[in-house]
Amino acid sequence: MSKRSLKLGRKSGVLPRVRPVFKRYPIRHKTAEEKAEESKIEQGFAEGIPLPQKKGFTFHRQPIEKPVLTVEERIKRNIDERRPQNIDESKLSQDEIWQLKRDDIRREHLREAYLKEAERLHKIEELKRKQQEREKKASSVVKQHTEESGSLTLPTIDSYLKGPIMRQRTPEEQQLVEEQRVLNRRAQELEIQERKMNELLQLYHAAANFITTEEELEQAIKEAFEVNVSKFESKQMVIENKLSGYFNAFSNMNTNESIVTDEMFGEINGQPGLNKIKSTLDGDVEKLRREAQLSINQRSA
């Protein structure tokens, strides 16, 4: 016996592992936290690697979940079902009777061991759960204190490096962003459609000056090649006005006046615009005209 073992009660100091009461099969189902922790660990044999072989044992590529065997099921299987039934002790010897009593005592001790071990494991789980709750609460308090103290001071480089620089949107904010995107896209599509309709309407109004018949073509050729003194003089006057600068001012004034008139009345070169056509098709103009006529008739009456 060495001197080192004296302080340990003349023992080596290395105690053997406690033999587990519940072997092979667990007594309860795994919690969500335990399943999440196990999912992070890769277990089993990879594809392409042959499984090892052992007599009397079957290897699986992925670990198989062990069935749950509760304490009540263990007591029923290992104690109640193994208890001998309908035994006449008068026909047994003293040794056999003592053996039966000894087996009953062992079964009762086993039952008590099952119940105490289940209670002990339950207490350990409760202590772990309370400890996790305390740690979570303490971390939340520290985080809240850090946020409150950080809100009163300027952010530092360390605070930027601890977490993401930009806060992630909440589901409600993300839904609002998606709705706003849909609204913007539809507004752009409507704007493009209105622009195309305006261009088509301008083309329709300009089509009034297009040459579509042979008579119009002959008239245009005649006017182009016919010598008209009055038109020649007017063209000459226009050229002189352009050279003097008077025509440009007059032309710009007329152009600006036509642009302002078109914007005010929603017209295109003096012709009905898109809004006026929409109002006519919807019946708004006719409705306003009838209401105005009705109010005039009521006043005159």
Rank of each mutant, 00 (worst) to 15 (best):
L203W: 06
E223M: 08
K30A: 10
L274K: 00
G48L: 10
A187H: 04
L152G: 10
H145R: 13
S159Y: 04
Q175D: 15
I211A: 04
R111V: 02
T156E: 00
D80R: 10
P272C: 09
V14G: 08
N228Q: 04
L127C: 02
M166R: 06
A208S: 08
T31V: 00
R169P: 08
P50C: 10
E133D: 12
R290C: 04
E173D: 04
L92D: 07
N198K: 14
N252T: 11
A208L: 01
D103S: 10
I259T: 13
L243M: 15
Q85R: 10
V238Y: 01
N269W: 01
G150V: 07
V285M: 05
V18S: 09
V260A: 09
I157N: 04
K143D: 11
K162P: 02
S93Y: 05
I105N: 11
S39K: 13
S39A: 15
R129F: 07
V260Q: 13
R61H: 02
V141Y: 00
H109F: 05
A224W: 07
R107G: 02
S12I: 07
T213E: 05
L200V: 05
L110P: 10
D95N: 01
A301Q: 15
R10V: 04
K222E: 11
F57W: 09
R28S: 06
L127M: 07
R17T: 00
D103R: 04
Q132E: 14
Y246F: 05
S93N: 14
A118W: 05
S139R: 14
N269E: 15
E47Q: 11
K235R: 15
D103Q: 14
H29Y: 01
S12E: 13
R106L: 13
P155M: 08
M253E: 14
E218F: 03
Y25F: 11
L127V: 08
L294F: 07
G283Y: 05
Y204E: 14
P164Q: 14
S234L: 05
A46H: 05
G163H: 12
P164D: 15
K11Y: 08
T70E: 12
M1F: 04
I41P: 06
A113W: 03
Q188G: 06
H122G: 11
H205T: 07
K40P: 06
R17P: 08
K231R: 13
R289A: 10
E65W: 04
M1G: 15
S159I: 06
K196H: 07
E233M: 09
V227D: 10
S2N: 15
P155C: 09
S251R: 08
V21H: 07
K130A: 13
V238R: 13
I165W: 07
N198Y: 08
L200Q: 10
E81R: 04
I64Q: 15
Q53R: 01
L92C: 02
I49Q: 12
Q298H: 07
